[in-house]
Design a protein around this nucleic acid. Structure first.
Length: 604
RNA sequence: GCCGAAGUAGCUCAGCUGGUAGAGCAACGCUUUCGUAAAGCGUGGGUCGUCGGUUCAAAUCCGAUCUUCGGCUCCA
């Protein structure tokens, strides 16, 4: 965002606050910055803002803008600032915000008209610089983003340097909604979420299943190339397994309640335990129970443990499309991108310290290959490192340094910009994530590679080194898609449902023209089917235009039009959304071969 | 989980201040057999998310609850 636009938006947020104060003098102001897409301001007010209020506030803002107030910056001492805040009756949050300004830094107030706000600036010079703005929504938000704090009301808006730019942005929003995976998923019969089945639980419909299977096949191919072994593990495991791994009760809040054996349940019921006592017993007591797995790692660890290992066997790479279950808060659920049951394209690598660099590199290559094949170039890479001032991490400093260095080195080799975030690492090791945005600009983490020193320790994993002594292997967790559900959701939006041939649930449709050609068209249909294409036959008595329209709206990438002309010459006519160079008449065999190759090559 | 909004036919939506539901598309049937994005006519389909309340009467008003959407928090 350029500086002028930033100033406009930041100024708009001040105008918003000024307008709200005119209409609701009791409102307490918290904070109101410019954002990537607009601006907001947070208010504390007993009255709940309504849609009508939003309109009134907007009208008041227009008034303020037309008054063409001048933004003036005033530097104050801390003492003066405190007095000013108290005098204005805005001490509820502003005093705290003032305290955030570090000692020695300038304290500035920006004034426009009757409104003054603690603010570092910069601002536009006059309110009339805000040429176009619109208030978009009201949302709840916690003061300082902490759910223990008071919940405030946030008004979101956006502002631009011209009416055209605003129109443009609003149109873009509309356009984006059209490619929303929840909308397309329904329209294209890819998946469903059913109230009766449960929130956040995805039903993959036949067409969505084809999409998913194609993605899985693709990954499997890459895994074979990279020397992974496929494994399968159950959906539940004993509580004890997760106690050893440290996941239970550590992740208790995000797990489904344990499945406790009938006898134990009975015994606890007889004791008349309260919920708290029940949980305590499950956590600490001698209770036999199972957990729906929130992650696959402990299972893979036990597979590794089931054999003795020599350094010559390493690295061991165990891969599984493992379905896991997490109790996400209901308000966090979102289509396919945030669900309660999802399938990780998971794998765990057990390697020696010497192999770590190369293995991380291999994982990143895999992720990169996936993103390149899909044609997703709009992602950002985030590496999460430990907070140097915290002691919550396990593993030696030496190990941490080495693995952080390995991660950083690998990230650099990607040739894309990445950010380093301190304190974001898991307690067991640093990680590197691939993050993409959905149609409304929300970020979702997809691929991830994490180094882990913790689980090998907790499960006492060993291999015999060349010195004939036991050594501790290092684990890498990695998932190039992250989860098939989230990835598919993002993928639907990425392609706006217009999938390349290899992913399209229906790759080809035969459009016969008239009853006379049905027999010939049927032959072509059989050939295409035999060639492995996902093909359908439109035998309806609609006109060609209607058949084409139907196929187009259903986003079928290729069509074969077969009329008298083609039937007599033994040809077919291709109409293709994806490959204009395919279009024209060809022999049926050629046409089918072209489409088959297109699918095989996973061309975009 | 919290704040706010919403839930009417398979889909998209209309139904004003209460008088017991309507359109387009889809589906189905008949006619049409057609040349690159919509042929014509007809038919069926809804206990208005669910439960309770107010009322002579509730899709409409009130309460609870479930689900969805936008935020916040949290995550793959």
């Amino acid at each position: 965002m350029n500086e002028d636009l930033y100033k406009i938006r930041h100024s708009a947020s001040h105008v918003l606050a000024a307008a709200v104060l005119r209409l609701f003098p009791d409102a307490k102001l918290d904070i109101g910055p410019a954002t990537d897409n607009g601006f907001y301001y947070d208010f504390d007010l007993t009255h709940k803002f309504t849609a009508q209020d939003l309109e009134n506030i907007e009208a008041e803002m227009k008034k303020i803008i037309s008054e063409n107030q001048r933004f003036e910056c005033k530097e104050l001492t801390r003492q003066e600032a405190q007095e000013l805040i108290k005098k204005s009756g805005q001490d509820a949050f502003k005093l705290g915000r003032l305290a955030d300004v570090p000692e020695g830094e300038k304290i500035t107030f920006y004034t426009n008209g009757e409104f003054a706000d603690l603010c570092a600036g910069p601002h536009a010079d006059y309110t009339k610089r805000i040429k176009a703005f619109k208030l978009l929504s009201i949302a709840g938000t916690y003061h300082r983003g902490d759910e223990k704090n008071k919940q405030l009301q946030r008004i979101y808006g956006t502002a631009f340097e011209s009416k055209e730019a605003l129109e443009n942005y609003l149109n873009q929003l509309e356009e984006a909604k059209r490619r929303d995976h929840r909308k397309l998923g329904k329209e294209m019969n890819l998946f469903a979420i059913d109230e009766k089945v449960g929130q956040g639980l995805i039903l993959w419909k036949p067409k969505g299943a084809i999409l998913r299977q194609s993605l899985q096949d693709f990954i499997l191919e890459l895994l074979r190339e990279q020397g992974y072994s496929q494994v399968f593990t159950p959906h539940i495991g004993k509580l004890d397994l997760f106690k050893t791994s440290g996941h239970f009760p550590y992740y208790k809040e995000s797990q489904f309640v344990p499945i406790v054996e009938r006898d134990d349940l009975n015994a606890m019921a007889k004791k008349g335990l309260t919920m708290d006592k029940f949980e305590e017993e499950v956590e600490n007591g001698d209770v036999t129970g199972y957990l729906l797995k929130p992650m696959n790692c402990p299972f893979h660890v036990q597979i590794f443990k089931s054999d003795p290992h020599s350094y010559r066997d390493l690295p061991v790479r165990l891969a599984e499309f493992g379905q896991v279950y997490r109790w996400e808060q209901s308000g966090e659920l979102n289509g396919m991108t945030r669900v309660r049951g999802f399938t990780q394209d998971d794998a765990h690598i057990f390697c020696t310290p010497q192999q770590l660099d190369e293995e991380i590199q291999g994982c990143l290559d895999l992720v990169k290959k996936v993103f390149t094949t899909i044609g997703m170039s709009d992602y950002r890479v985030r590496i999460s490192l430990r907070d140097p001032n915290s002691d919550k991490y396990v593993g030696s400093d030496d190990n941490w340094n080495k693995s952080e260095e390995a991660i950083r080195k690998a990230a650099m080799s990607l040739g894309v910009p990445f950010t380093e975030e301190l304190g974001e690492a898991a307690f067991y090791g640093p990680k590197i994530d691939f993050v993409v945005k959905d149609v409304i600009g929300r970020e979702w983490q997809l691929g991830t590679v994490q180094v882990d020193y913790n689980l090998p320790e907790r499960f006492d994993l060993t291999y015999i080194g060349s010195d004939n002594k036991a050594h501790r292997p290092i684990m890498i967790h990695r998932a190039p898609f992250g989860s098939l559900e989230r990835f598919t959701g993002v993928l639907i939006e990425h392609f706006a449902g217009n999938f390349p041939t290899w992913l399209a649930p229906e790759q080809l449709r035969i459009l016969p023209l008239g009853e006379d050609v049905i027999a010939y068209a049927d032959e072509v249909f059989a050939k295409a089917k035999k060639a492995g294409l996902r093909v359908s036959f439109d035998a309806s008595s609609e006109k060609l235009g209607a058949k084409i329209r139907k196929a187009e709206t259903e986003k079928v990438p290729h069509m074969l039009v077969i009329g008298k002309k083609e039937a007599e010459a033994g040809l077919v006519s291709i109409r293709s959304r994806l490959r204009k160079n395919f279009e024209g008449t060809h022999s049926a065999d050629d046409a089918i071969a072209m489409i088959v190759n297109d699918a095989k090559s996973r061309a975009l």
